[in-house]
Design a protein around this nucleic acid. Structure first.
Lengths: 219, 219, 219, 219
DNA sequence: CATGAATGAGAGTTCATTCAT
DNA sequence: AATGAATGAACTCTCATTCAT
């Protein structure tokens, strides 16, 4: 399941080639994060990677392709953010709290890249697809979790699990975007991160009508 | 409180000038909606407005400025979408349902423009500001509503009204974006609009822990 | 002997027309002096004259033509700068000193316009001709003066009067240009005006080998 | 002491790049000399250099910059025009005559470029500075020469050497400009070059009150 | 006599991509 | 595998001049 557009170039075989390719991807990440996709020129990237403009095309066929390679890097971190696995038999509220926290932390780590993805997904259909695939993976996982809670009699049975997951996942991801991307870009005073997390989790728990036991004690 | 960037050009005084300016804005809306901001060339706009390239600069100083004028058009419709006012003493659940529906309907009417705003707000700081100002107006209104419900003992008193509003407003606006912009752009089968609305409203109501009385009977 | 390009437009007959034309010329002088010929836009001039762009063409056929009208204004002041007539039977040295001083004072009064003339005469052949005609008038007058001094046995008889006048007139006019235009434009400390005048006059007198009697006592 | 504006582009390292850059500068000189600065379009230059419009920007950032490069070419020839060095212990009159002749000859060789410099120095402050720096070098050299003659008791001690040099240098350079640029541009009958030179030198010598010995015998 | 909107050719400039070396 | 000069289409923007009102 390739989440990123296929590369049209083979991966290099020699160590030198691998090194150059890595340098280009790393440089591209820096440049893209610093200037955004549109304002980054290929020549900025090759200069940062200390190679010539022509060399770029040994490894990538276009600007889009190297962006795909850059975004690929953060993929696993965003899709499986939990460093420690959560036991699904733990208290559901604690699981949700931990999961939300893990998502926010991953977002924080990859904020610049998420901003980039948001930018290009509104420009290039290929990247819109990429973003949607990632969002869908997140939505499906949450839908499974909601369905499981419903089956165990813990969550509001009236809710369509997939639609509910779409809504709640949207809520979380947009909160993260606003917090880590928008507010940061506008040099706003940093918002109340913990408060945000607590509120988001409480809303999520309420929304599913889970028993309230111990919201907020997730640390 | 001008939500849009100020024009650097005076409004024309003669009827003819007014007509031409309107034709340009209308043409710009069509062109932007059809090709997106980046791919729209000024010459496409002037051609659609049946005037010369130079005439554009009689009324606008740049592509950004005419986009601002275009977005200005949809402003009131997005900020005050309800055609019929809701009585705040109605059943809270009914109010929320009606309000969400009104938002979705306004989004549907202005979907292309919202897509445009999403695109440029990730490119141009001026438009990021514009989007945030509009989002904030929406968030503040919902926050007041939540606070009022709390004061009347109907909503979960533990919630910070502003943070909760941010979260729930994010949920609604992102759902609308995904439904009317993303899915449409990708030629997906149209989603279950009514189901989405019902779920969103139920989640909102649950999240605030409002009494359940008559969720979903908002039609 | 029209020193300026002919106007293609008749002078207006009504008082209103005369007023508008005058306002345009005055405005053009201000605008040209402030921004130079190339950077002045017709619309700047009409705005300054408080009339519309179209009105301009009631009185002038082009940007060049109004410049000609502006330069015409300073013509007499530059060609006959002496307010009080010098008696040609005065001491020749005193006559030269007074004449140089008068030239410099006229240059000072019209410095901005001279800068303008210098600018356009290097761009537009029509104005090159205008400048040369004025320079020639100055040169011829000085040539006559030199010839007269030679005939009276006072000046170096070996000199060709016309060539000598060209050289000495060039010296004076270029000194004035450097002093009032170049140095002023570059925000240099104002040069030693009196010293310049004394030196220029002494060089002129020496160059003609006039008797030295009373150089510098020209005040 | 760079007299020309610094380049914003690095000089090319490869022979091919050097060749292309040279072709562009040579083409620019031809085009500028033929059409003047303002009427020369970049595309005329690149066409004459047989390269594409984009290539221009590999070597220069603007039209001004390539003009600076063109003017740079003639710099040394104008500042050190004497092919054979003059022995400062020669007869002073002969030295002056030789020096004036050398200046005129250099002006003749670079007349088109001098016209160009005169044109742009009245348009662009950067080139006004350039012209002044070159004029100043010329003035300073002549001032030193005058001072030396004064110290040796040969020249009028009453003269301020710097002011006198400014005046006499202005005289010479303006004569050259009028002879080689203005008269040529207006298709006038060629003036009496030798007569001009003799007169200019005689005036210069007279102006300094040098002993007359052998004026005009400088050939 | 006055208006001011409309014109439109043409300029300089950018940069992803190619390709001869 | 690497170079970097060359490409060229496409863009935005300007402003003297015209003309219908």
């Amino acid at each position: 399941m390739p989440a990123a557009p296929d590369s049209d170039r083979e991966l290099p075989t020699t160590p030198r080639g691998l090194r150059t390719r890595s340098a280009l991807v790393a440089a591209a990440r820096r440049v893209f994060e610093g200037s955004g996709y549109l304002d980054s020129r290929l020549i900025d990237i090759t200069r940062a990677a200390q190679c010539s403009a022509g060399t770029f095309y040994t490894y990538f066929t276009s600007k889009e392709e190297i962006l795909a390679a850059v975004l690929e890097q953060a993929r696993d971190d965003m899709l499986h953010p939990g460093t420690e696995r959560v036991d699904p038999h733990d208290d559901p509220v604690a699981v949700i709290a931990a999961s939300n926290r893990a998502y926010f932390e991953a977002y924080r780590r990859n904020a610049k890249l998420m901003a980039l993805l948001e930018q290009v997904s509104n420009i290039d259909p290929e990247f819109r697809r990429l973003r949607r695939e990632r969002a869908d993976a997140f939505v499906r996982r949450n839908a499974r979790s909601i369905e499981s809670l419903q089956n165990r009699g813990l969550a509001d049975a009236e809710l369509d699990p997939l639609l509910a997951s779409r809504a709640l996942s949207s809520m979380i991801s947009r909160l993260a975007f606003n917090h880590f991307v928008v507010d940061a870009a506008d040099d706003r005073a940093p918002g109340d991160y913990e408060g945000l997390l607590v509120t988001a989790t409480r809303l999520w728990v309420n929304a599913l009508r889970l028993p309230l036991s111990d919201i907020g004690d997730d640390e």
